[in-house]
Simulated scan of single mutants.
Amino acid sequence: DGSTVLASQMESASVFEIDAETFTVRRQLPTGGSWSKVIALSPDGATLYVSNWSSNDVSEIDLATGEVRRVLPTVATPRGLYPAADGQRLFVAGFENGELARIELTDGTSETLLQTGGAMRHLVGDAATGALYANDMATNEVYVVDLATEAVRKLADTNDKPNTTDLTPDGKVLYVSNRGANNPESFYIPGPEWGSVLAIHTQSGAVLDGIVGGNQTTALDVSPDGQYLAFSDFLDDRIQVFEIPLSDELIAGGGGRAQAHLAELAK
Rank of each mutant, 00 (worst) to 15 (best):
G213R: 09
Y175V: 02
A252W: 10
S177R: 12
F231L: 11
G2N: 06
A7G: 07
P30L: 05
T149N: 00
D146E: 13
I61F: 10
N97D: 13
F16L: 13
P30V: 09
N140R: 12
S177A: 15
L208S: 02
Q240T: 14
F23T: 09
E264V: 01
A128K: 14
T47D: 09
V15I: 07
I200G: 04
Y228P: 03
A181M: 12
G66S: 01
V144C: 02
N159L: 12
F231H: 14
N183V: 05
N178D: 12
Y175C: 01
G2P: 05
P245N: 01
D107K: 01
A266M: 13
T168M: 03
R257L: 14
K37I: 04
A258N: 13
D157W: 02
V58G: 02
D237A: 13
G210I: 02
P192G: 14
E67N: 14
T202W: 08
D237S: 13
L220P: 06
G256Q: 03
L229C: 03
I61T: 06
L220W: 13
R121C: 03
E99R: 11
I211R: 03
E243H: 14
V152G: 09
S232Y: 03
A128R: 15
V71Y: 12
H261W: 11
P162I: 04
F231K: 09
R257S: 11
G2D: 02
P245W: 01
T4I: 10
